[in-house]
């Protein structure tokens, strides 16, 4: 692992019975970099996301993370409290379905403020002000701060989830199909928002998507997975415009040009 790598995985293996989910997967991520993991359903991309983020243990292999103090930590050897603390401060996780992450019975402000409160913020006014500032960053009107998420549209829910995730200024965010399940026009706006936030805040992102157009617009680099194996990886536009591996050529030729 290089001196400045943020996240580094070596030799990840995971099998579910006869199914190989990860087969000797290596992966590196640098600060501020967006890495897309693409492939069809069942290719192991979501499993890889879960293993990289410590939510699922590999059968062998190691995931290193450089914490804010510059120390290397083995994600899967971390004590549970430390990993949970990492997940609610320096890391974020954006789910495909925002309802999996949001508290639907809690106001937008409470949803955004929760991570701050979990970190020990104890000033109501400050928490609320911060929540409003983040709602505005994700283009939700400040006057929605006291509304319940159930009154929000799908695109707003996803933006609320992003605000809730970014409020603690994480350095690394894992995203699982963040634009999946949204209307095309809503997707576009969300993509632009994610792109500009990630760029402006210098956040590193591991992004799982089956949508090559999403990978093209957001990611610096892309990893193509097939049956648990990384068959090709490199610069996003190079992999998509000049695919080398038969599977990547098939993937690229199977979609309408974006």
């Amino acid at each position: 692992m290089n001196d400045d790598t943020l996240l580094s995985a070596r030799g990840l293996n995971l099998r579910f019975g006869a199914v190989t989910a990860l087969d000797q997967v290596d992966c590196d991520l640098w600060p501020g970099e967006v890495l897309a993991i693409v492939g069809e359903s069942g290719s192991g991309k979501t499993t890889l996301l879960n293993v990289l983020s410590g939510r699922m243990a590999p059968q062998s292999g190691v995931v290193w993370y450089r914490d804010p103090n510059g120390h290397l930590v083995d994600v899967h050897a971390m004590p549970a409290p430390a990993l949970r603390a990492l997940h609610r401060s320096d890391w974020g996780f954006v789910h495909q379905n925002p309802r999996d992450n949001l508290r639907m019975g809690v106001t937008a402000g409470g949803n955004v403020g929760e991570r701050l409160m979990a970190q020990g913020s104890r000033h109501y006014g400050n928490i609320r002000a911060e929540a409003i500032a983040w709602l505005e960053q994700v283009e939700i009107d400040a006057d929605r701060v006291d509304h319940l998420p159930r009154t929000f549209s799908g695109g707003m829910l996803q933006r609320l989830q992003i605000a809730r995730t970014l409020v603690t200024h994480p350095r690394l965010v894992f995203m699982d199909e963040p634009t999946g399940g949204l209307d095309v026009s809503v997707q576009a706006r969300l993509l632009d928002l994610i792109r500009s936030l990630v760029r402006r805040l210098g956040i590193a992102v591991v992004l799982v998507t089956h949508d090559l157009a999403v990978a093209r617009l957001l990611a610096h680099r892309v990893m193509v997975m097939q049956r648990g194996v990384v068959v090709e990886s490199g610069l996003t536009d190079q992999v998509l415009d000049d695919p080398q591996h038969p599977y990547t050529q098939l993937l690229v030729s199977s979609v309408l040009s974006a």
């Binding site: 949970r84 609610r88 402000g109 409160m117 970190q119 104890r122 109501y124 006291d146």
Partner: peptide, 21 residues
């Protein structure tokens, strides 16, 4: 688990919601 890890942010969310409402 929340007690074990002293993760009580959720309780403060409840207080936050009360003050808001």
């Amino acid at each position: 688990r929340m007690h074990g890890l002293s993760e009580y942010g959720l309780m403060h969310v409840k207080l936050y919601e009360d003050i808001t409402r």
